[in-house]
Design a binder for these strands. Structure first.
Length: 422
RNA sequence: GGAGAGGUGGCAGAGCGGUCUAUUGCACCGCACUUGAAAUGCGGAGUGCCUUUACGGGCACCGUGAGUUCGAAUCUCACCCUCUCCGCCA
């Protein structure tokens, strides 16, 4: 959500933002609703002031004719104003709905583009492995080594279901532990956050109302969040922090659920696209300052890259084009890992900042040295997506004999340096 | 799942249809008194919105949302949350 005053004064920015993000939004409709809202408010408030005035008089007039006359006068004022009150209720409903649809303004550095095809590569890191054999897919490798069971997964969990077994399960634990150790040194607060969340949390983080189809919900009207960002951000709902408590840096662990409603036919096999997974997510709340947001954005990306480098996984960083940005995102980087079996990079991390788009919806503020409360800025980035990360990890480290080498940083967490017979 | 109690300003805690611009206490800020402090006295403090060049003015906010009423913190309904007891349970 943006500030209505800002929207009013910068109509053309919103139009450009919608265009760049390839989002349909008519600012004119919102501004029209806002004009109606303000006209009605002014008129209603004038009448209310009058009512308040009379109210005092009635209270101090003893029962009798004079009092009855005042009450009759009040009744007629009320009849007039109730028409306007009803109209305002209708206008406000329209206004609120539109306010939730206003796109945040993308940064100047965000490239134009129709889809993720137009995301721009910023840099690549690492050396793609060269095999003197045809590299196998993670599916084949994991099934051969008994690290995963997809057919039993589908049997038990349904489409896109999976089991991780043996070193496959251990590898996932190892990645979590390794990641947590890394963020201990960066002074992030470790948190295990709920995935079962209320609707307001998803409205607040900007996943609703637009993302309804991709979310599971329960018979008690709760939702299953698709990322720990939701729980971690919602932790601060309606809070006013002190400026010296910022930045808040959270490394949130959670179960994540995605319906993948629009992805039928994509990545139907293996671990690339599953309905249920675990993720460690970086979340930062910082002061309301663009430069500070940008600084933290680069910091989040740097941490995510550090993890990839430590795991020795070749990757590239892209800057997402306008159409590939969410409604609330100002700018986003993706990290894409090299997948030998597909001979292409696939997204593993997503790193974005929002300015006060989310905190406005969640009502997260901080009090500055001047005593004024402001909406904080928020950012988040993937730290460790599992089991997706197992794909590049296993595929890039596969050996001619079908075994898989464990990267050095994980050996201690795994208790072994290789999976499968040598 | 069943029964009950309750949600009021930073905190504690009154008010249960009009005199509430929400009593009071604590904490906070300013001023006075004081060499300084304590104590005391006086005064001030929240959030959001509308309006105004500005000074200012107005409206709303007693968990949330509807309703009754000329008038709601107070009455009615729904929802959310907290606590106590019983039941079930990893």
């Amino acid at each position: 959500m943006l500030d209505i005053k800002f929207i009013r004064e910068n109509k053309e920015f919103i139009e450009l933002a919608a265009k760049k993000k390839r989002v349909k939004f008519d600012v004119g409709l919102l501004l029209k609703a806002d004009d109606e809202r303000r006209t009605l408010l002014t008129s209603i408030e004038k009448k209310r002031a009058e009512q308040n005035e009379f109210n005092g008089q009635i209270a101090s007039t003893p029962t009798g004719g004079a009092r009855e006359a005042l009450i009759a006068r009040m009744k007629s004022i009320k009849d007039e104003s109730s028409v306007e009150e009803e109209k305002l209720t209708e206008v406000m409903k329209r206004w609120r709905k539109l306010m939730l649809e206003v796109p945040n303004i993308p940064d100047m550095s965000v490239p134009e583009g129709e889809s993720d095809e137009q995301n721009q590569e910023l840099r690549t890191w690492g050396k793609k492995p060269s095999f003197d054999f045809e590299p196998k897919s993670h599916i084949e490798l994991m099934e051969k080594l008994d690290l995963a069971d997809f057919s039993r997964g589908a049997e038990v969990s349904g489409f896109r279901g999976y089991f991780l077994k043996n070193e496959g399960a251990l590898l996932e634990f190892a990645l979590w532990n390794f990641t947590n150790s890394f963020f201990r040194t960066k002074k992030f607060i470790p948190m295990i956050v709920p995935s079962l969340v209320r609707r307001e949390t998803l409205l607040g983080t900007g996943y609703l109302p637009q993302g309804e189809d991709d979310l599971y919900h329960t018979q008690d009207s709760e939702y299953l969040a698709g990322t720990g960002e939701v729980g971690a951000m919602a932790y601060f709902t309606n809070q006013t922090l002190q400026e010296n408590e910022l930045p808040q840096k959270i490394i949130a662990f959670s179960d994540c659920f995605r319906r993948e409603a629009g992805s039928h036919g994509k990545d139907t096999k293996g671990l690339m696209r599953v309905h249920e997974f675990f993720k460690l997510e970086q979340v930062i709340l910082c002061e309301a300052n663009h430069e500070v947001s940008v600084k933290h954005h680069e910091e989040l990306l740097a941490y995510a890259e550090s993890l990839m480098q430590a795991l020795e996984i070749p990757y590239r960083v892209v800057i997402n084009c306008g159409a590939d940005l969410g409604l609330g995102q100002v700018k986003k980087y993706d990290i894409e890992a090299w997948i030998p079996s597909e001979k292409r990079y696939r997204e593993t991390h997503s790193c974005s900042y929002f300015h006060d788009f989310q905190t406005r919806r969640l009502n997260i503020k901080y009090k500055g040295a001047d005593g004024k409360a402001r909406f904080a800025h928020s950012l988040n980035s993937t730290a460790m997506p599992t089991p997706r990360m197992l794909i590049p990890l296993i595929e890039n480290n596969q050996q001619a004999d079908g075994s898989v080498k464990i990267p050095k940083v994980l050996v201690d967490y795994m208790g072994q340096d290789r999976i499968g017979i040598s």
